[in-house]
């Protein structure tokens, strides 16, 4: 994906951005730190999805279910038990990964749209539980005022916490995708039959990919609770899954950083256009149509094409 030599340059760019982000909170209004933190959380969710969609070629259509499982697990453990924060923090992603294992185990048996629909049904079962089990989850109201630890209560501290976890996760995801496992995943995306023929266990790799991706979705869910102090069933609703999927397409899948751009655009549009008009989804829709007609590879795809480093080949192959 990246030319040799330019990876060092990318590293320095990332480091510079991280330093800038670290020094931002004292300078900018508190509202903007909140928006930035919100973008980090959504980006993490979108990037975790992109691991299986962009790099794995899987039709992971209900990724939000795992985000919700992470958020609910964290929220429930903090509200109903007296476990230390660290335990709850680790339990969230692990619960999400377990849900990923369970749902993925069924889904990898099917392909493409069938995979997608099976996952939507199974994910919707999780949603139904969150939506209907009033005594445990608060039903459609969700839970509000979740007691996150006091050191995370100020929005600046939450910002730093989210930024650090986000950066660590980003690094981990990058390393996983560069590892032999990540390469195999991409090979499976491009030609599952040939991979099967050379002795790669396709289903097992896909399942592990799903487990890793859902783990990071769970981390994003936990971070959401750290930021918002609440959970509600919409976190597991398929509309959110679709939105996250769109973020990946918008920013440019097949690029590592694309989903961040997509998430940033969606969150900013919702926040800033939402202030002026309740019809921000109309504007998003029109924007998407312009994008489809003029930037079919997504924003990052367009940028990397301009810069001459061609994005990963085989978009058609992955889809067909």
């Amino acid at each position: 994906m990246v030319k040799p030599g330019s990876s060092l340059r990318s590293f320095w760019i990332c480091a510079a951005i991280l330093v800038v982000l670290l020094f931002l909170p004292p300078v900018i209004p508190r509202f903007y730190t909140y928006i930035l933190a919100s973008i980090f959380v959504t980006s993490l969710l979108a990037m975790s999805l992109n691991m299986v969609v962009g790099y794995g070629g899987l039709f992971q259509f209900h990724h939000a279910a795992f985000y919700g499982v992470g958020a609910y697990t964290f929220g429930l453990l903090l509200t109903k038990t007296h476990l230390p924060m660290l335990v709850a923090f680790i339990a969230g992603p692990i619960a999400a990964a377990l849900a990923g294992l369970l749902i993925g185990w069924f889904c990898v048996r099917l392909i493409k749209l069938y995979f997608a629909m099976l996952q939507i049904s199974l994910g919707s079962l999780l949603w139904a539980i969150a939506f209907r089990w009033y005594s445990l989850t608060g039903g459609d109201d969700g839970m509000h005022g979740i007691p996150t630890p006091s050191f995370l209560f100020s929005s600046t501290h939450a910002y730093y916490f989210i930024l650090i976890v986000f950066s660590v996760c980003l690094l981990l995801m990058y390393l996983i995708l560069k590892s032999p496992f990540g390469m195999t995943l991409q090979a499976i995306r491009d030609n599952p039959d040939r991979c099967e023929a050379v002795g790669v266990n396709v289903r097992r790799h896909q399942l592990i990919g799903i487990i890793i991706a859902t783990f990071f979705a769970g981390v994003a869910g936990v971070l959401f609770v750290v930021l918002e102090h609440s959970v509600f069933p919409d976190l597991l609703f398929w509309i959110l899954s679709l939105e996250v999927f769109i973020m990946c397409l918008l920013g440019g899948w097949f690029t590592f950083i694309g989903p961040v751009i997509g998430a940033a655009i969606m969150v900013s549009l919702r926040t800033f256009v939402g202030i002026y008009t309740q019809y921000w989804t109309l504007i998003l829709g029109v924007l998407l149509i312009f994008l489809i007609f003029f930037l079919p590879e997504g924003i990052m795809g367009f940028i990397s094409a301009k810069l001459g480093s061609k994005p990963v080949e085989g978009i058609e192959r992955a889809v067909e």
Partner: peptide, 13 residues
């Protein structure tokens, strides 16, 4: 993606 955009637009319309 196109039909999703259409859904957003029609919903708001």
């Amino acid at each position: 993606l196109f039909t999703f955009a259409l859904m957003l637009i029609l919903g708001d319309l």
